[in-house]
Amino acid sequence: MALNFKQETFRDDYSYSNSAHAIRRFPFPFAEDQYMYSVNIEPHTKGEPGSVYEFPFDIDEHYVAECLDKEITLMQDPGRYHALPHMMDAQWDFLELTMTALANDYPEHFSLSRNGQTWTWDNKPLGVCDTFTFGDSSTLVREPFDYIGRQVQGDFVLLDQRDGTLYADAGIVTSQADWSLAFNVGMSWKEWHGPVPRATEIGVMDRALKYLLNLQLANPVRRLNWTMTVNPRLDTSPENYPYWGGDRNKVNTDNVGDLVNLRVELQSLFRLPRSNAIVFSIRCYLMSLKDVTSYPRWAKRLHRVQKTMHPDLIEYKGMTKFHPIVVDWLSKFDDGAELGIGTHPE
């Protein structure tokens, strides 16, 4: 089924919106009334047709607009892409993984033809068509990871595995929830997750690391993470914090439903074959609180989760200023009815 790509923006006038279809397939992350940080990793296996889990890399109606936003961010700040020299094998691994998946899963929009090492990549929605030699960076306009990273929704970090840990040694990061690639590049797993509160104490990060070190080819895994963002802004980077931080003051009882967005990251991890590196894919989904209330079950669940949230986590996720307004607004939608376990909308 061909996708209908929307024209919209993730900055300035924020014309981004979700269709009814996009709302229904939104990866709502709360299966229970209480939230606590946990490993919550599961196999990234094929999900139901139409769901965000149908394919390894989800392409949706926001694809073209999101890639355009990515271009703007990278043009303004080339430091959002960084790859240490020893990651070149991993770069080609990443290119192969994503091109193969997109061409296979969305044949109306993408095609890849391979003739030995000579590959031709045709990206119809973005109007890109290039022939290059696999393994030879000089035949592409940019480094392979940079080249294809711009043509897939989401952020990507390539993790090198050595000395019993993982190092974030390359990344293309333009839609992050407040962390800096330029600052974090080259960090080990523990350094990178240094600022996560509480979680480290209960050993969540150690367990997740142990699990990922044994991640196998052809057996990717995924988890959901979430936060809330004022305005549907992809680039909530620390780099540009001076430009978006002030938006947190703008939330009030009248506009909270439109202004505050539930921001869900579908994080998936794939072992790469030639480099033995891991690609950490962070795919961001945004939905206004008003859209969340399209489904009463989600509105009730979100209210309960937010009401019982630990203050440290509220602070860590940068929601302190507007969180009480969110809880108060959501309370109107919660009649206290029992919901049962599960993230389904109805």
Binding site: D89, Q161, R162, L217, A218
Partner: peptide
């Protein structure tokens, strides 16, 4: 599938 527990140190 192949598993690597004896990797070369890339650096």
């Amino acid at each position: 599938h192949p598993v690597n527990l004896f990797t070369l140190a890339k650096m």
